[in-house]
Design a protein around this nucleic acid. Structure first.
Lengths: 213, 213
DNA sequence: TGAAAACCTGACCAACTGGTCAATTTTTGA
DNA sequence: TCAAAAATTGACCAGTTGGTCAGGTTTTCA
C-alpha cells in the first residue's frame, strides 16, 4: 500500500545512487542475517551497518522480507555454479576434486552467505523451497546421471550419487556453518587459510578414496 | 528480582508436579526452538504447545533464556555419548561403523534436538561455547589419539582424526538440519526409515572406504 | 485436619520493532 | 536554468512479546 519506493526496474539498473545503496544494504544485511537469522535480525541494525537511517532503508526495500529475499537471491546464484566440471568425459577423480575445492573456497570466502543459506534451510526453507525442488533438484538429477555413468563404466566405486552430493555439501559447508564447533575441537581461535587448506585436503582424500578413486 | 519460582533444587527432584510440567515444557520448547530458533520462538507458543498458560510457564522458567539453556543441556547429554565404542583395542571398521550408525539413529529419532543444536552453533554458540572448548574438545582429543594409534599400527589409512570427527558430524546431522534440502533433491516429501537406512549405508560405505577399511 | 508450601492464572505493562508519512534536500536531464 | 524525479530523514504509530504481580487454588505432610 506504499507508493514510496518506485521499485527499481528489476531488469535495468535503477539510478546510480540506488545501485550503490542497495549494494551496501545487501552486504550489511548478509552479515546481520548470518549472525542473527531472519527473526533475530533488525532493520535498525542493518541500516546502522549500511550507514543510513532506517527510513532510508525502507525507501529501498519495503519490508524486511524483501531484503532477506534479495540476499538469498544473491546467494543462490553462487550455489548453482561450480558443477560445470562434472561431465561424462571428465576424469572422475579430477572433477570431484575440483568440485570439492571450489565449494570449500566458496565456504572460506563467503562464510556469511553460507550461514544465511543454512539458516534458511534449518527453518524449512520457506523462501527458497520452490527453488530447491525445482532448479536444484533438476541440476542434481543431471549430475547424478553423469556419476551413474562413471560407475557403470567402472571408473569409480558404486556410490549413491544423490547422497554423494548431500555429503559433499555437508562436508564443506560445515566449516562455515558450524565454525564455532570446528574451531573449538581444533583448538583454534578462528579458521585461517591454512586451516581451510588442511580441511580441503582432508575432504578430498576422504571422499576420493571413499569413491574408490 | 522475582521470588516466585523457588528454583527446583537442581540436584534432587522438585515436586512431582514440577517434574511433569518441566518435562512437558522442555519437550514443547525443543519443537518450537527447532522450528524458529531462539529469537523466533515465543514463550506464548511454547506455553500453548505445553498446554499451559504463559504465566505458568514463567513460574517454572523465569526467562526464555532459561528454557533455552535447559533444552540445550538435555541435548548436550545426547551428544557426548556414543563414542564409547572407539577404543584402542576395538576393530576400526566396526567401531567407526557403529559410531556412524549411532549418530544417524540419533539424528533420525531426535531431529529437533539436532536442529536446536545446529541453530546454536550457527549463531556462534553463545550459550554452549564453553562446553565446546572444554568437555567436547577433551573428548575429541582423546578419541583422536585412539585413531592416531590405529593409523600408526597400519590398521587404517592416514586421516586427520579431528577433521574426521568433524566430517562424521556433518555427514550425519545434515539429514536433520537440512532435511528440506535433502528431501528436495531426493524427491521425497519427507524422510522415512527407509531413507535413513539408505543414508546410513551410504555414509558408512563412503567413510569406511575413505579410511581404507 | 489444617496450615504451609507449591502451584496456577488473568490482567497488565514497558520495551522493542517493523513499517508509515509528510516534509525537505539532492540529483537529473531537457 | 529549472522543474520533475529520486533520495533522505526525523517523528511517529501499532502490534508483538518477554516478563510481572497480586490473589486464588491445590497439594503436601506433620
Amino acid at each position: 500500500m506504499t507508493a514510496t519506493a518506485p521499485l527499481p526496474r528489476e531488469d535495468g539498473r535503477g539510478g546510480r545512487i540506488r545501485q550503490q545503496q542497495e549494494c551496501a544494504i545487501l552486504q550489511a544485511a548478509e552479515q546481520v542475517f548470518a549472525r542473527a537469522g531472519f527473526q533475530g535480525a533488525t532493520m535498525a541494525e542493518i541500516a546502522l551497518r549500511a550507514g543510513l537511517p532506517k527510513s532510508n532503508l525502507h525507501y529501498y526495500f519495503g519490508t524486511k522480507a524483501e531484503v532477506y529475499r534479495a540476499v538469498l537471491g544473491h546467494i543462490l546464484r553462487l550455489w548453482l555454479a561450480e558443477t560445470d566440471c562434472i561431465t561424462p568425459d571428465a576424469d572422475p577423480r579430477e572433477a570431484l576434486g575440483h568440485y570439492i575445492a571450489a565449494k570449500m573456497r566458496l565456504t572460506a570466502e563467503r562464510p556469511d552467505a553460507s550461514r544465511v543459506f543454512a539458516n534458511e534451510l534449518l527453518h524449512g526453507a520457506p523462501e527458497i523451497g520452490d527453488y530447491l525442488r525445482g532448479e536444484l533438484r533438476t541440476l542434481v538429477a543431471d549430475k547424478a546421471q553423469v556419476i551413474e555413468g562413471w560407475i557403470a563404466a567402472g571408473r569409480m566405486a558404486p556410490v549413491d550419487p544423490v547422497h554423494l552430493f548431500i555429503s559433499l555439501w555437508a562436508l564443506t559447508q560445515t566449516y562455515a556453518d558450524f565454525e564455532t564447533q570446528v574451531c573449538a575441537v581444533l583448538g583454534r581461535p578462528q579458521l585461517g587459510p591454512e586451516d581451510y587448506r588442511r580441511a580441503t585436503a582432508h575432504v578430498q582424500a576422504l571422499v576420493l578414496r571413499g569413491c574408490g578413486l
